[in-house]
Structures are given as C-alpha cells and as structure tokens.
Simulated assay, not measured.
Amino acid sequence: MLTVDNLVKSYGGARGRGRGGDAAEPAGGGRVFAVGGVSFEVQDGELFTLLGPSGCGKTTTLRSVAGLERPDGGTIALSQRVLFDAARGVNVPANRRELGMVFQSYAIWPHMTVAKNVSFPLDILPSSRRPSREEIGRRVRRMLEVTELGAYADRSATKLSGGQQQRLALARALVIQPEVMLLDEPLSNLDAKLRESMRFELKRLQRELGLTAIYVTHDQSEALVMSSRIAVMNAGRVEQIGTPREIYAGPATRFVAEFIGTSNFVRGVVASADGDEVRVDTADGRLLCRGAATRPDVGSEVLLSIRPEALSLATDPRPDAVNQWAGEVVGRAFLGDSVDHVVRVGSLEIRTRSNPAQSVEPGTRVHLTADPAKVTLVPAG
C-alpha cells in the first residue's frame, strides 16, 4: 500500500532549530539527522503507528509522507505511485498526494458550522475535480453519521466539546476519501479520560471504514491499544517493527524494552545455548531463557529483560521452580488494579507487579520466580 524506503531528512545551521521538535542543533554545529534511513511498509487496512520519544523523528517522517517536508534521500510510494524519489527528482506536492491529515491542533474553522467544516475540503477543489453538490452533501452526511455528529450539523464548530471537535477534524479529513490517513498525535490535547475513550472511537472508525492510517504518538498505551503494527523509533531510526504483542513480549533492544512498559534488566554471560533455550550466568545465579529469538555464542555478554508482571512473589520457596531468587521487599506501591513490590536480590532491585490482594510489608524475606518463556534476551550494548 504505502512504502517508505531509506528515508533521510537532515537540518543544518539555523534551519536545524525549532522544526517541529524533531531536530536539535548539536553543540558543535553541523547537520542534524532528524530521520536517518527509515524504512517501513504499511499494508492496506492497517493502522500503523510510529512510536517514540520527542525528537526521535516520527513527526518529521509523517510530514515527509504528507509532502510538508522535503527529505534529503529515499523514496515514498503509494499503491505503485511514486510520491517522492530523491534520486529521480520526484516530489509530488502535498495537495496532489490525496492524503488526509489530522494534526495535534484541531484547526477547525471557527466561523463555519460543523457541516461546512466537513464540506470545506471538497468545496475548494478545482471545478474539474469537485464532486456535484448532491455528492458533497451525501459525503458530508455520511461522515457526520460515522463520527456521530449528525445532530450537530448546523451548530457552530466552536460550540462542540473537545472530543466532538476532534471527531470533526477526523470527519473533515475523511470526506475527501483519502487512500491513507495521517494522524499526528491527534489525542494529545484531550484530558486523560476523554483521550482513553477516543482511542477506542478512533479504532472503531478505522475498522468500520477500512481505513489505512499512519498514526504518530509518544504514548505507549495509545500505541498498544490502537495499532495493527508499531514501529518504535529512536534517534531518527526504527529500532523494531511488530505487532503490539510482539513488541511488548519480545523487545529487540534495550531501548524498546525500556520505552514500552517497564522492565527489569539483568546482565550476564551465556553459559549454554541449546535450541531456543539459553542459560545465562548472572552475579546472582543462573537464569534460563526459553524461546530466544536468537542463539548467542557461549561466553558472550547478554542482557535479560523481565517484565514486572512476569515475576511471581511468595514468602515460601518453590523447590521445583527454575529462575528462583531469594530477596527482601524494600518497597511497595498500591496502584489500584495492582501492587508493585521492589525486592532487593543481591546487588539488584527487582520490580514485581501482582494482584492487589497480595501486599507484602517491606523487610519481609520473599522468593521470586520468573517463567523462562517470559525472560527475553536483548543485546548487551
């Protein structure tokens, strides 16, 4: 559907400052690579998310796809139609790419009604491409219906709630029937409760309309809830692409493991590797990793990532358990739907997450066990 290959975008001198938060001027001057060789492919009907911290290049990548930034290198193609090719000098203007875009700011027209806001992109098309008044009316009614704004068609756009204004911005982008929707952190201006409900609303619209969309966010929960696949970005590059479950359960790098959720990291040396089972000697005992995606060399240094919820905490040892540690609770926190304990094991402090019914006082001696299938091997670098 949409293919981005080896996209590069850099800024230099004064141009490197203040460009959408995706570039920062280095102390010694020179060019800043906001995007440094990004490649991915978005399938038809997929909600593909670019996820990462501020300054990682995700917004610059999206703006390059939209035609609002001119990259220095790479190609962008949509359904066999080349939108950008640095080597061949192809750069289709933004208004001819036929993409819908929703920004952080709703950017709705305050002097127009809800219906006129939605029809505006069609009203300004050249006469040769503009649909008939009947077709424009039909499309507007359809978009107001799917975004549940039909009852507000004649209302001033500024008299809508925040969530309604966000849906209006979506309806306006959808009315042109774009091949791909581009969404740049569209929920970031909403309060926490409304943002959570709008995640499901957006996902419903995407599925109902069969939309293909690229979604930019720094919110990991948002990405996990909404995405078909996620590209985790860091420092202008893609660290890992996968489904939400693949990204969360099998992070490819330490950055991904730290950015998506919470992880405990244990450094060690590979003692043996047999098929997908890897035994690692750590300063506090041997750990077994089962289902390793790669088979590291014996004697090589590795990093083990263990999610807090993958650890079981008990006051009594389990004689038959593997990956068992003895330690002492040094802290706990009630989180409502769970309780986090911090357990000191030798030189480490391990964080666990359990049912709120389990709450162990600090100072208590406990035993931790980790399912080998939930211990993930990541590069030590």
Rank of each mutant, 00 (worst) to 15 (best):
Y106M: 04
M101Y: 01
L144A: 06
Q164Y: 02
M143F: 12
R97K: 05
L99K: 13
L125S: 03
F103E: 01
R167A: 05
A107W: 07
E135F: 03
D154M: 09
L122F: 07
A115M: 08
L170R: 14
T113M: 07
A115Y: 05
S161H: 06
I108M: 11
V146G: 02
V175S: 06
G163T: 07
A86S: 15
G163M: 08
R139M: 07
Q166A: 10
V114Y: 00
E179H: 14
R142Y: 09
W109Y: 15
V118S: 02
M101I: 15
P93C: 11
Y152F: 15
L144K: 04
Q165V: 13
R142G: 05
N91A: 15
A86N: 14
P126T: 11
G150H: 00
P178Q: 12
V90C: 11
D154K: 12
S119C: 04
V92N: 06
V90G: 11
L170C: 12
A153D: 06
R167T: 10
A171R: 00
K159N: 14
S119R: 09
G162Y: 07
I176L: 13
R97E: 07
A87P: 01
E145Y: 04
H111S: 13
V175G: 09
A115N: 03
L122R: 00
I176H: 07
L168Y: 04
R172L: 07
E148G: 03
G162S: 09
D123V: 03
A107C: 08
S156G: 13
L125T: 06
F84P: 02
H111L: 07
L174N: 06
M101L: 14
R133Q: 14
R141E: 14
T147Y: 02
I108Q: 05
E145D: 15
A157L: 05
H111N: 15
V102T: 10
E135Y: 00
R96S: 11
R142I: 00
A157E: 06
P131N: 10
L144Q: 08
R130F: 12
F103D: 00
